[in-house]
Simulated assay, not measured.
Amino acid sequence: MLTDGVALTDQHCHGVVTADLDRARFEQLLGEGPRGTFDSTLGTAVRRFCAPVLDLPPHAGADEYLRRRAELGWHEVSSRLLRGTGVTRWLVDTGFGPEPGHPAERMRSRTAHMATDPALTAGSQRSARLTEFGALAGGTVDEVVRLEQVAEHVIAENGYSATIFADIENALRERARHAVGLKTIIAYRCGLDFPLLYAPPAEPPSETRLTDPRLLGWLVGLGARIGAELGLPLQFHVGFGDPDLRLHRADPLLLTDFLRATADTGATVVLLHCWPFHRNASYLAHIFEHVRMDLGLAIPHVGLRAGAVLAEALELAPFRALCYSSDGYGLPELHYLGALLWRRGLGRLLDEWIADDAITTADAEALVRAIASDNAAQIYPHSHSTEITGTP
């Protein structure tokens, strides 16, 4: 396949659980709801494609798979699966879960492994997690900073002072100096039909967990301006997620006014995941030159339907607009399946296009390289991290 062996940049992912897992805990991480299951397209893909990486036959039973996983231990399993992705650059969202002194974003069971050492600073803990992930995965690891996490950390530390908005901006600028991208989860908090504000609201925030649309609209506007100034893309969670989300409010078409407002500012907006709105996201990437998109966690969740979802995304999206990501979280199986199913899905799709004489082999190879890493290289700055390639 044209996709075999091509190096990937995973433009949006998270860390993995650094502990061994029983079946209940493992299955919790196999879905976006309160409990996933092996009895799903994703669970079937784990048994089919991840089992051989752990020296098991394809389609090994769930119990057999988990026994072998326990025999090898989380460290060996994570290293095999992460390094088997072919990813050479990882852009990691470090904001999923609590920081020292910071209220939990969503204290679900899948963030329990991110417990922190009170003797370390928030910055050193983030750095330690990135270093640990890099040692497991190899390649270059960089940080994507979550806007809401920074703002809530400042509020938790400083309270509702008269300078709170300036304090938030200063903290965000400091974090952005060491990052390659910014991210917002405003879709979870109030939906994507938020008011874009260029000045902070008259009243300071009265809550630690931010949900007020006006305050969040100011924060996202601030992130877009800082991103444009520093050359950092602003990522938006779009489409399906966990039960905190109201899916109809995560349709990227609700961002149309925001995209019009930011079109000529130098900002780059990246729409993450997108399913089931990936065609809507494709349309936005088609009409707004500063919009990029990925399919993220949709790819491992849809399994062998990945090719169909990729085909639908490419119906309108310019080839320069689509980037690869896994949105892997907790289980290294998700990072691995994101890469493997992307390669299979896109490879088979392009084989069909070549067979139909819809595209030349040279153009297809260029498209693969673009989505795999070249498009991300065009929008994300050079790495702030040291490459880690040695044996973990």
Score class of each variant (00 low, 15 high):
256 T>W: 13
275 W>F: 15
270 V>G: 00
205 P>L: 11
236 F>K: 04
296 G>E: 05
222 L>W: 02
245 L>T: 07
203 E>T: 13
219 L>W: 05
205 P>F: 01
288 F>S: 06
238 V>T: 15
264 D>I: 12
234 L>V: 08
244 D>L: 05
220 V>E: 12
185 I>G: 08
265 T>D: 13
187 A>N: 07
209 R>L: 06
291 V>K: 00
239 G>Y: 02
219 L>Y: 04
248 H>E: 09
216 L>D: 10
300 P>D: 06
234 L>D: 10
257 D>F: 04
289 E>Y: 02
245 L>H: 06
231 G>T: 06
203 E>P: 01
297 L>R: 00
260 R>D: 05
249 R>G: 00
258 F>Q: 06
238 V>C: 14
221 G>L: 04
266 G>K: 10
250 A>D: 10
207 E>T: 14
246 R>H: 12
242 D>Q: 03
218 W>R: 02
208 T>I: 05
269 V>C: 13
281 A>N: 06
262 T>W: 09
249 R>F: 05
302 V>H: 04
290 H>W: 05
205 P>K: 03
204 P>H: 03
266 G>V: 15
187 A>L: 11
198 Y>I: 11
190 C>R: 00
249 R>K: 03
293 M>Y: 10
230 L>F: 06
298 A>N: 13
268 T>S: 13
217 G>R: 02
194 F>T: 00
284 L>I: 09
219 L>P: 07
270 V>H: 15
262 T>C: 08
205 P>A: 14
281 A>F: 13
256 T>Y: 10
236 F>H: 13
185 I>H: 07
253 L>S: 02
209 R>P: 00
234 L>H: 13
238 V>Q: 02
227 G>P: 14
216 L>V: 15
283 Y>G: 00
260 R>N: 02
211 T>L: 00
298 A>H: 07
209 R>V: 15
223 G>E: 15
